[in-house]
Design a protein around this nucleic acid. Structure first.
Lengths: 323, 323
DNA sequence: TGGAAACTGTCAAGCGATTGACATTTTACA
DNA sequence: TGTAAAATGTCAATCGCTTGACAGTTTCCA
């Protein structure tokens, strides 16, 4: 790989001048610029970002630790974050923790070593104090850790919205399918608010938790089927993700339960899947694009970071065919 | 951030010694090691990977340029690549080109600047010669560029398999929905082989192309619906992706066409979506995990790179409910 | 007891770029 | 013609870490 010295030699100037051209500082004649550009072109030179980073102490890289890139929600989130990061000249390093605390810890160290300029923490198995000693900006997603700014959808509103919809649709016996309510995740507020609202209307929801392996879909079907065996009169279900809803839809199909005639179904997220399903899924939409934009702002812009600690985004009920 | 000097000072040794401890070279007494580890711990030190990269000329980063992380196929692929890269101590930098040649070019430059140790090229809008001058290992996905090793599924076999299945199911009038057949992509071989096999059986498939904006799903429905208007007797369809198949399934649902009774449907990829659909999709499975593993090997292992230029993976017909 | 082998540690150059301080030459214009 | 501004260049330090060369101290055994 050619270095700045090679360029300088070819262009007949000093490395300092080449650096000046690259960074456009100081006085430079058209002629000099021309020569330098030409030499860079001739050598197919591009400045070594590593060396620049060493000096500038900025890597221009943001990191994200998430549970699983293959989950549509996180793929979508990561996709948008990459988009906005890119707009601000940042690159995105993606780390799949697979919900594994050890890997998560390793990634935190790895990203620290790599001098990333900011971290999005969207996987939450680590103890809180692991983060206390990190030096770079951190934004957490769907969880509050220490004083770090966090981003989430208005989970409370989402739970209430889902409950009210099901009630207004006349559901008397409702089920709720969610992840692990023991975890200290903001997204669990969806469930709490849903349950609370239901209770206020005199309905005691039947709750099914997927447990810790939220991302292992293989057991979803066996988990959901008994709900309908034990409670054949269930006529409304709210799930905390669209994928869970897809499985409900499938189980109902197996059992001959017609949606929306026999059962109203509401998901959460509004990932593309919700429109690919048949019938198309009614869901609570998280404004992913806006959330991703804010996440990048929080990491790259000190003012934003200082002004917004709690970044709670309104959700919206999207009516499709399952309700 | 503490540096190696700080650690040396606290431990009462020289930076060289600390470096030796970190890299475990030369003779070191237990006592010295102990002191150094303790100092590192006390300072919460982790070596600056940027500085190490500058010296070693290795960044430990692989890059991938893909059209859209939000597409399940690429999310899955990237997820697996990240997994295997990680196993070999590499990180993964993800770049979404959004099918935009300018962005693609920018990413190529950007990744070059960042001294990545290898590139997976899975987005193909650039002219071939743009790649000629890149210094790091490159693997292309689903396209042949110059002499670079490439990875793909056996698209020919996939097309034949799909055709034979439909024929054996008794389909007489078949449709085929694909991307843009003008592009020089290996994945288009699926279509060519499908069409050829069909013709050999005296069937002239009706072909619908999504055009260049393959990733803009919004027009899929209007694209597919006319097929059934113009050819009500179509009773078999092969699509080049599972997502396309999901749209076919939806359109059929709209039009009251029953799958698999009235129409047999076969997709391609076998992404999780295919099991979330109702009815579950029969599809041609690409061995994504194995392909990702090979991709990482090709980039990180010279021997592999020298031995395997064409990396074509067998596909498999997965029978589910749509056939 | 002498000297090689086994340890332990220091020094300084270098990776590729940036930048402040300073010097010299050219250009422009009053 | 004189002088300030513009243009170009030199030099050396710096970012944090690695490593070959070298030096000093122990250990051990013939």
């Amino acid at each position: 790989m050619p270095t700045i010295k090679d360029v300088a030699r070819i262009a007949g100037v000093t490395p300092t001048t080449v650096s000046r051209v690259i960074n456009n500082r100081g006085y430079l004649s058209q002629n000099t610029k021309q020569k330098v550009y030409q030499a860079m072109d001739q050598l197919n030179y591009s400045p070594n970002a590593i060396a620049r980073s060493l000096f500038s102490k900025k890597s221009g890289i943001l990191g994200i630790i998430l549970p699983d890139l293959r989950h549509p929600f996180f793929a979508e989130l990561a996709g948008y974050i990459e988009f906005y990061a890119n707009q601000s000249n940042y690159k995105l390093l993606i780390c799949n923790s697979n919900h594994n605390a050890t890997k998560e810890k390793q990634f935190v160290d790895l990203l620290k070593s790599n001098q990333i300029d900011g971290l999005v923490m969207a996987s939450h198995t680590l103890d809180v104090d692991e983060f206390a000693r990190l030096e770079y900006p951190i934004v957490t997603f769907d969880r509050i850790i220490d004083q770090f700014p966090y981003v989430c959808s208005d989970n409370h509103q989402g739970g209430v919205l889902a409950a009210e919809k099901l009630i207004s649709l006349g559901c008397k016996k409702v089920g709720h399918i969610c992840g692990n309510l023991q975890l200290d995740l903001l997204s669990n507020q969806r469930s709490w608010s849903f349950i609370k609202t239901m209770k206020e209307h005199g309905i005691e929801p039947i709750i099914i938790q997927t447990g810790n392996d939220v991302f292992d879909y293989s057991h979803y079907e066996e988990l959901i089927t008994p709900l309908f065996r034990d409670h054949p009169d269930v006529n409304g279900i709210f799930t905390t993700s669209d994928i869970l809803a897809a499985y409900v839809s499938r189980v109902c199909n197996n059992l001959g339960i017609h949606i929306p005639k026999d059962l109203k179904l509401i998901g959460y997220d509004d990932v593309p899947l919700s429109t690919w399903m048949i019938p198309q899924l009614s869901t609570i939409r998280q404004p992913m694009r806006e959330m991703a934009e804010r996440i990048v702002q929080l990491l790259t812009n000190v003012q934003t970071r200082q002004h917004y600690n709690a970044n709670i985004f309104d959700v919206e009920f999207i009516k499709r065919a399952t309700s």
